[in-house]
C-alpha cells in the first residue's frame, strides 16, 4: 500500500516534469477561461448560473479531462520504452500498477481545477460559500474517474505515435461535443442527443448543479459510472497482453 502511494506520488512528479503536459492541461484551460470570461462574462446567466461561473466549471472540467486522459496515455510511453517490463520486475503487482496510474491521473488533474477556480474567484469575482467551492471542486474531480480510466485504455492500445493523436482527438472531441466549449443549448437536436451519452457532458452538469446548490443529478452518476465500468473491463483486457515482448 505504502509502495503504491509512493509510486503514485513519484509518478505524478514525473508527469509534471513534461512541459507539453503542463501547457495542455493547466495553462491552456486557464488562458481559455480568462479569454472566454472576458468576452462573454457579462452576458447574464446560462443554465441557472452566471456565465462566468458556467465558463469556470466548463474550463475546470476541460483541463481536468485533458490531464486525466493525457496522464493515462503516458502508459504508451512506458510500454514503448520497455519501462513497464522493468516495472514487472518489482514488487508492484499489475493491479497496483493500474490503480497507481489511475491515481496519478486523478492527482495531476487537481491543479487545473484549483487554478481555474482560483482565477474565477480572484480575477472574475465569482463568489460562493466555502462549502460550495469545495463540493463543486470535489464533484468535478470525482467526475474525472471515467476519464482517468479512458486515458489508461488509450495508453494500453497502441504505440506512442498512434496514441498521441488519438488522445488529442478524444480530449478535444469529448470537450466540444460535451458542451464544455459551447453550451449544449446552442447544439442541434442531434448533437444534443450525442452530448447526453458523453461523460464530458455529465461532468459539466455535475459541476454546474453542485455549484447551483441543486445536488448531484442521478443521471450523471449513472452515465459516469457506466463509462467507468465499461472502460475498466476493456482496460483490464488490453493491459493483460501489454507485458509480453511480442
Amino acid at each position: 500500500m505504502t509502495m503504491t502511494v509512493n509510486y503514485t506520488l513519484l509518478s505524478a512528479r514525473t508527469t509534471f516534469a513534461n512541459a507539453r503536459f503542463v501547457i495542455f492541461t493547466v495553462a491552456l484551460p486557464l488562458v481559455m477561461f480568462l479569454l472566454f470570461s472576458s468576452l462573454y462574462g457579462d452576458q447574464g446567466s446560462e443554465g441557472g448560473i452566471s456565465v462566468t461561473a458556467y465558463l469556470m466549471v466548463s474550463m475546470a472540467c476541460y483541463g481536468g479531462i485533458g490531464a486525466a486522459i493525457n496522464s493515462g496515455a503516458r502508459v504508451a510511453v512506458e510500454r514503448q520504452t520497455g519501462w513497464n517490463r522493468q516495472l514487472r520486475l518489482t514488487a508492484l503487482s499489475p493491479t497496483s500498477y493500474l490503480v497507481a496510474k489511475a491515481a496519478v491521473s486523478m492527482l495531476v488533474a487537481l491543479p487545473a481545477i484549483i487554478l481555474v477556480f482560483l482565477a474565477g474567484a480572484i480575477t472574475r469575482g465569482v463568489e460562493l460559500p466555502a462549502t460550495t467551492w469545495l463540493l463543486t471542486g470535489l464533484a468535478v474531480w470525482l467526475g474525472l474517474i471515467p476519464f482517468a480510466v479512458l486515458g489508461l485504455v488509450i495508453g494500453s492500445l497502441g504505440t506512442v505515435d498512434a496514441v498521441q493523436p488519438i488522445t488529442m482527438l478524444v480530449f478535444i472531441g469529448m470537450s466540444i461535443l460535451g458542451g464544455l466549449w459551447f453550451p449544449v443549448s446552442q447544439f442541434s437536436p442531434f448533437l444534443h442527443g450525442v452530448a447526453k451519452v458523453l461523460p464530458s457532458y455529465w461532468i459539466g452538469e455535475v459541476g454546474r448543479e453542485v455549484l447551483a446548490g441543486s445536488g448531484v443529478p442521478p443521471a450523471a452518476v449513472a452515465v459516469l459510472l457506466a463509462w467507468t465500468i465499461g472502460l475498466g473491463v476493456v482496460g483490464a483486457a488490453t493491459y493483460r497482453r501489454s507485458g509480453a515482448r511480442r
Binding site: 509512493n6 509510486y7 513519484l10 510511453v77 520504452t81 520497455g82 514488487a91
Partner: peptide, 24 residues
C-alpha cells in the same frame, strides 16, 4: 533488460528513486 527500459523526463536519480520505491 535488453532495450529501452528508461523512463523519459526524469533524471537518473529520480528514475532510481521511483524504481526503489517499488521494492521491499
Amino acid at each position: 533488460l535488453q532495450s529501452g527500459a528508461l523512463l523519459p523526463d526524469v533524471t537518473v536519480r529520480q528514475l532510481l528513486t521511483t524504481f526503489a520505491a517499488l521494492h521491499r
